[in-house]
Nucleic acid binder design. Structure first.
Lengths: 177, 177
DNA sequence: GGATATTGCTCAGTGTACCGACAATTTGGC
DNA sequence: GCCAAATTGTCGGTACACTGAGCAATATCC
């Protein structure tokens, strides 16, 4: 290892070594890169709306479930409660959703899409579709289905390893002391 | 759309609707989830070292290229200069790397692994390997190679869409005025 | 019905990841 | 060798993402 002497060579003219290739070929590293790319493509395609992928996901879920509370939203979009708090507060500031105090359970906040938010969901649709297309564009047409299927398997079967796992219904929690 | 009335139903008991499924099956959403999982698995497997995937990547690259400057490091690990600045400053605080003023170009910082850092790279290796294995574990053995190959293609061919693309040599930049 | 446990949300703290702007420095054109 | 252009690292700002602590409200056990 350590095959060059950057101290004496000039700045960013850097050759990738074999040791680097080991790192760069790791699944974890490639997944991180693909997430960066996917995020950048979305933001770029949807730049007229100034919306991020997570903000979009939250808006769609709120639109599908009017009055949903933040914890239930966590379970759909797979984020922890703190992050969801941040995301919905940004959406509220942009007046794309409303946040009301829950009438049944006064601890909760009930989330609703606004007319402006509904319009964004509708108008942004082409950008969302083209983003998904662009992400998979480098694959051959026949490979895309297989890749997507494996992606789903990896996410669903590794679900419990995530810090904010998707929960379809209330978890089988609390074996009491 | 909007098939339930969460206002009257109780808290996080939430059924996933068909509209949600459209969202949850998007490549971009799945990639984000897989990155969360991959990150969590790494941190968990390597918890004895309190090291993140990006910190590990930076340490390996610095070990492979003693004296590398921060911009060249960006091009290997695919992060922008601000992020690399944060990452190396955390590694320096933990005394896993050293940061010296460049002798040739006084704008740069020359990065070096410390003995402690070298030991971490060595000792953490089993955790890194088991992480990579766990990420792909849900796939059938015969599928893993294909998935990894497609992942590489997606990253390399979409490279330019990333905000911090991998650069093997100095970019063909600067057509001067 | 009252003690106890659980839940919903927020806050502070840490870390990744980006952008745009900046001073110091180097480089390229002449 | 001088000056304009380019580069390096930092800083402030924004956003995602998680942990752990804490408060208020609700639910549960007896």
């Amino acid at each position: 290892m350590a095959r060059d002497r950057s101290t004496t060579t000039r700045n960013s003219e850097m050759q990738i070594s074999e040791d680097d290739s080991r790192l760069l070929a790791m699944p974890g590293h490639l997944i991180r890169r693909l997430q960066q790319i996917s995020f950048a493509l979305f933001v770029d395609q949807a730049k007229a709306f100034e919306i991020t992928p997570v903000q979009y996901a939250a808006m769609v879920a709120i639109n599908n479930h009017p009055g949903i509370d933040q914890t239930a939203l966590c379970n759909i979009v797979a984020l922890d409660r703190s992050t969801v708090g941040d995301v919905v507060s940004r959406l509220e500031k942009k007046r794309l959703i409303k946040r009301l105090n829950g009438s049944v359970d006064r601890r909760t906040k009930s989330l609703y899409i606004t007319p402006a938010g509904r319009k964004v969901i509708k108008d942004i649709e082409p950008a969302v579709q083209s983003t998904q297309r662009l992400i998979l564009a480098p694959l051959k047409a026949g490979e895309r289905g297989a890749f997507l299927r494996m992606l789903k398997e990896l996410v669903h079967l590794n679900n419990e390893h995530s810090r904010a796992p998707l929960r379809l219904t209330r978890a089988p929690q609390r074996p009491r002391a």
